[in-house]
């Protein structure tokens, strides 16, 4: 592991008595509320190549043991980078609040 984050309260005594920030997920709250289009993965088509995971700027794509991607919609901003880089083009961007047929 590179630079393990230590946010254990006991180890906080090791930190200097100065102001510092601790790393948290969601430093700005749930950025998923920014989203207009929601990515939807077609798991039958998906070849588990992990390209989406590699290029996701938001680091919201997590992978299973076999490489199946899952998107954390709490923080996904819906930028569609995953859909564009997907070699199989199996990620559809669905407009929030619409059904799949009406997608753009």
């Amino acid at each position: 592991m590179v630079n393990e984050v230590n946010i254990d309260p006991k180890s906080r005594a090791d930190m200097p008595t100065t102001s510092y920030s601790k790393p948290v997920i969601g430093a700005t709250g749930k950025t998923g509320s920014w989203r207009t289009f929601t990515p939807q993965i077609d798991y039958d088509e998906c070849s588990r190549c992990r390209t989406c995971w590699l290029h996701c700027p938001e680091a919201v794509i997590s992978l299973d043991e076999d490489g199946t991607p899952h998107i954390d919609l709490d923080y996904c901003k819906g930028c569609a980078c995953c859909a564009e880089v997907c070699p199989k083009k199996c990620i559809a961007m669905i407009r929030e609040g619409f059904d799949e047929e009406e997608s753009v």
Binding site: V24, T28, L54, P57, A59, V60
Partner: peptide, 26 residues
């Protein structure tokens, strides 16, 4: 090996949607 490396930038930051800078950091 890439899969084993922990991400150094967490999700939920304020970068614009689609900005490539967080990917660069990753």
């Amino acid at each position: 090996d890439m899969l084993k490396k922990p991400e150094i930038l967490t999700s939920g930051h304020r970068m614009c949607a689609g900005c490539a800078a967080p990917t660069i950091v990753k």
